[in-house]
């Protein structure tokens, strides 16, 4: 294990960004990923450990001109308790409700879920549905620099993001969805609580009479990162959700996903799960 030589507790974003400039820094928020990963040897501490939990500016859900900004330290419990999230972003609310356990939800932050970038990270799937943007702040030479990038650019691979080591993830932003936009999230695990998703699906669309418009589909744990499913979206866009459309959408999923076999499920089983769960969700939408 690396020897941690320094411990930093910044109070502001500027202070944290300054501290990150010095290189080998490990950030922690809730610790629910970092603590077990460091104990198992999967994650190694840098020479400096930075506790970002005292940065008040990183907490809370704020209204912006175009929608909402969710601070990195917002916990899963905060999301689950938020009427704005429940009403405006039901897929994100559902993902928070199905997340781990009360004790973990009270500690786990949305920033940690994003930065950890697990292919099974549960908030990532709805955030993809809402075309969320990740806000990264650094302080290369005195002045603060902000980089705002789409989720699809942020997520690079399992546990890999395009965040530079000198950047702090400060928030995730979402535009208010178009009028009439409804969204759902479905997570499949082998037990009801405390389960890492075997697969998960997020679905959002505007219902235009019988047809779906502005269709957005995201799938978790079926590729190296949670992904948008453009082929499925195309198969649904502007269509009446009948048996033929559902069948086309389900087979289109094979063009989007690239599941692996691991201890939770085989590649074959994940294909089956995506097919069956997508079919079930779409039939439900067709009837609802």
């Amino acid at each position: 294990m690396t020897r941690v030589e320094r411990y930093l507790v910044p109070r502001t974003i500027a202070e944290a960004a300054g501290g990150l400039r010095d290189g080998n820094v490990t950030i922690f928020a809730g610790g629910t990923d970092l603590m077990p990963q460091s104990k198992s040897g999967k994650a190694k501490f840098g020479t400096c450990l930075m506790n970002i939990r005292r940065i008040g500016e990183l907490r809370g859900i704020k209204r912006t001109a175009s929608g909402f900004s969710i601070g990195a330290l917002t916990t899963i419990t905060d999301l689950r308790d938020s009427p704005e999230i429940k009403v405006g972003f039901p897929a994100l609310w559902r993902a928070s409700d199905h997340f781990a356990s009360d004790q973990i939800r009270n500690a786990a932050t949305i920033g940690g879920n994003l930065a950890n970038a697990s292919p099974a990270g549960d908030t990532l799937v709805p955030l993809l549905v809402f075309d969320a943007r990740v806000v990264l702040v650094s302080r290369p030479n005195g002045a603060l620099q902000t980089r705002t990038i789409p989720m699809t650019e942020f997520l690079v691979g399992p546990g890999k993001t395009s965040r530079r080591p000198d950047e702090l993830l400060t928030a995730v932003e979402m535009d208010a969805p178009p009028p009439g936009f409804t969204s759902r999230f479905f997570k499949f695990g082998t037990r009801p609580a405390l389960d890492i998703s075997t697969i998960s699906i997020g679905l959002g669309a505007v219902r235009d009479g019988e047809k779906l418009r502005n269709v957005r589909v995201a799938i978790g744990a079926a590729a190296p990162t949670p992904i948008r499913a453009p082929h499925v979206e195309e198969a649904l866009e502007g269509k009446v959700v009948d048996g033929a459309t559902i069948a086309a959408a389900v087979s289109a999923a094979d063009c989007d996903i690239r599941p692996i076999s691991d201890l939770r499920a085989s590649e074959w089983y994940r294909h089956e799960l995506v097919h069956n769960m997508l079919e079930r969700m779409l039939s439900d939408v067709g009837h609802g």
Binding site: V9, G31, T32, M35, N51, D102, Q103, I104, N106, A107
Partner: peptide, 14 residues
């Protein structure tokens, strides 16, 4: 709020 103390950094109790 309840948390799992096995996942919490002791220094974060400060």
């Amino acid at each position: 709020a309840t948390v799992n103390s096995c996942l919490l950094f002791a220094v974060d109790c400060d």
